[in-house]
Design a protein around this nucleic acid. Sequence first.
RNA 1: GACCCUAUGGUCUAGCGGUUAGGACACCUCCCUUUCACGGAGGUAGCCCGGGUUCGAGUCCCGGUAGGGUCGCCA
Length: 451
Amino acid sequence: MKPRVRFAPSPTGYLHIGGARTALFNWLYARHTGGTFVLRIEDTDVARNTQEAVDAILSGLRWLGLNWDEGPLTGAATGPAKGDRGPYFQSQRRENYQRRVEALLSRDLAYEKEGAIWFRMTRQPILIPDLVVGDVLRRLTDREELDPDWVLVRRDGQPVFHFVNVVDDLEMGITHVIRGEDHLSNTAKHIALFRAFGVEPPQYGHIPLILNPEGSKMSKRDRGAALDAYIAQGFLPEAVNNYLCLLGWSPKDNTEKLPLAEVVARFDLPQILRHNAKFDYEKLMWLQGEYCRELPEDRFYEMSVRALAKAGMNTDRFDVRYVKAALDTCKGKIKTFGELPAYGGFYFKDEIAYDPEAAQKSFVPESKPRLEKLRDAFAKLTVFDAATIETTLKATTAGLGVKVGVLVHPTRLAVTGNPNGPSLYHLLEVIGKEKVLERINRALAAFPPAV
RNA sequence: GACCCUAUGGUCUAGCGGUUAGGACACCUCCCUUUCACGGAGGUAGCCCGGGUUCGAGUCCCGGUAGGGUCGCCA
């Protein structure tokens, strides 16, 4: 029988990186084994559920490319879904829970107390066979020693997580439960419930947690915790996926950068690590840079244009060849697309704002006549390409008896407003002689007067 | 507090009784480039502690310690 796995988030916040990693591991296992990946929305906490959170889960998974074989097609709880084990929103599965409660009640495996319905929990230690951790014998804690029973249905009629989770896994035919290790202790409750229903529990695989750099569970205030931040900052899903694969799983051969398709082929539960991993934003950023640098041109352009538009820069008013040439000088230099407006925005702006700190260093009285000399040399050029520009600039500095940097820095600042950026000679070529002269003149006017 | 999981450089990890303990990120130095990146060459830095087992333990066992998780009418 082919494995059936699921990702069952509760829509109470944003999709966080730990949830995304759990989804990814389930998806990988399904794809590796030819099994089925189910998405189920656990919206039983009516007080904390939000529609935005549901939408964020669906769009986040789609952005990562983690397509589900069964589950909702839209964020609407009563909307369309694919798969024949639905509904896939727990809020739409009330009758199932009711039926299951009654079954337990009728066999005295559950009872009512103080308006809630309680499960008669075994006092015996429960063996949790775990595909990742190994066999775990869970004993009662001292608190449970007093009374191991636990609530199935709250006084307000709402069934609790442990109950609905088990009922749904049972009815949806889930064969492997791959989830965070924070559920390991609670698995004893789940196993006992499955047995109460007369069925053997699914197989479990508890994966290690993702910790923040301080060493505790990632929370929303931690940098890098929210998936939508990556989307907003112009990360690439392949980079995020790749990094997430490396947190808690290892290809065992020192490979760091590997495409998802290869992970699908190599992924399996036994190679999942047993210890928690701290989230390393820098390493994710490194992978992001790697993937960004290798992006095919058309995708790079497409994402660049979108990032610029988001920052209010409309590239449509420029010639396509100009846009492409401009973006070419940025490719391989930026890591995320969120950096692009600040890095290469000068290509698409009319007014250049000078970096104040750099202006103080470069726009000094003694460099004014030098920059004027360069401007005059540029003005005489009939060919304005990178090579000619470089030769001209170097000849000018040589004539002045100064280092190349003496002209490079003020020129860059005058034309781009930034202390650094794409190759100066190439960016000047792209911008074109006319605009370059214009910008140099404008900068010259901004120079402080000589004393 | 009880129960459970875990323990290799700052971080992610390889290792599965005999290795000069390997790789990656980060960091430092140099080269390339008089921007910033990329790239190249070096470098600093590690087996939590204590007992066993063994001719020999990062590797196996036990005990500490430390970190994490769980003990809700949250999920």
